[in-house]
Design a protein around this nucleic acid. Structure first.
Lengths: 134, 134
DNA sequence: AAACCGGTGCAATAGAGTTGCAAAGTTTTA
DNA sequence: TAAAACTTTGCAACTCTATTGCACCGGTTT
């Protein structure tokens, strides 16, 4: 799918900036943080990127990941993702190369919660060493 | 067990400050962040609390939890905890009262990782509404 | 053309975490 | 017991990410 169409499909007006950012995200196979994203460009404003990511997130183009590094990371949503609990997947953070990956082939296992606890979201991050760093 | 003994058992010198902090932690049934902890006292230094928590963590009296709120929370380890993956448990964060609880009755379910990924730690936080807020 | 509006850029702020340094307190050693 | 050595504590300062306010710019509508 063309990048522009992807934006339109999620009701995001395709500005030059947004096309650039989405392209960068699509070129990646790991999640990216704001500062990292900033470094992929020669000269952009951090705030603009910040708001671009927020916009993408609100429109479910990307989801945010808190991998415990203190920096929020973002990764592309899968086709048709609504960011509901059942759409969520595990994330893996490599303690060596510090990359964070989506583990999309396994869903998050269900956990028995104590009585009367209502589930709304799940965040599961596994840390270790990724295959490239082995 | 007396509070002082608990410290000694984990090889932490029982200073007045540490006794106070550990007591506060034991009075709680939910995890606590640095700022919250600070507010439980009339007049303490943030840095001292910070370092006290770090010391406790290093000596496995408490474990830290990243519940995605941006503030690291701390909660008492269970008896005999070595903070290994198999000692870890799920945490529950209430979106209403913002408290974070340890769900100690269920371990973290194992997840099949992609080939050649090595697990070292797991952080699993479930968000929703706790029984008190229902 | 004027008013409007979303998007962008710059500057400034907020808040958590962290570090350096010196004072106070404890323990060890001569 | 006194001096030296080490640990803990308190204060101040700083880092870094996230976030907000405000002004400007470009395109669109009236």
């Amino acid at each position: 799918m063309k990048i522009e169409d992807k934006l339109l499909k999620n009701k995001v007006k395709p500005t030059a900036m947004r096309l650039l950012v989405l392209r960068k995200l699509m070129e990646r196979n790991s999640a990216i943080g704001l500062t990292e994203l900033e470094n992929l460009f020669d000269k952009v404003d951090r705030t603009t990127l910040y708001r671009t990511l927020k916009t993408f997130e609100k429109n479910k183009l990307i989801h945010s990941i808190d991998d415990g590094t203190g920096m929020t990371k973002y990764a592309l949503c899968l086709e048709g993702c609504e960011c509901n609990p059942e759409d969520l997947h595990v994330h893996f953070h490599c303690n060596n190369c510090k990359e964070t990956f989506c583990v999309t082939d396994t869903g998050i296992p269900l956990v028995q919660l104590p009585m009367n606890f209502k589930l709304e979201e799940i965040n599961m991050v596994i840390k270790g060493i990724c295959s490239s760093c082995k």
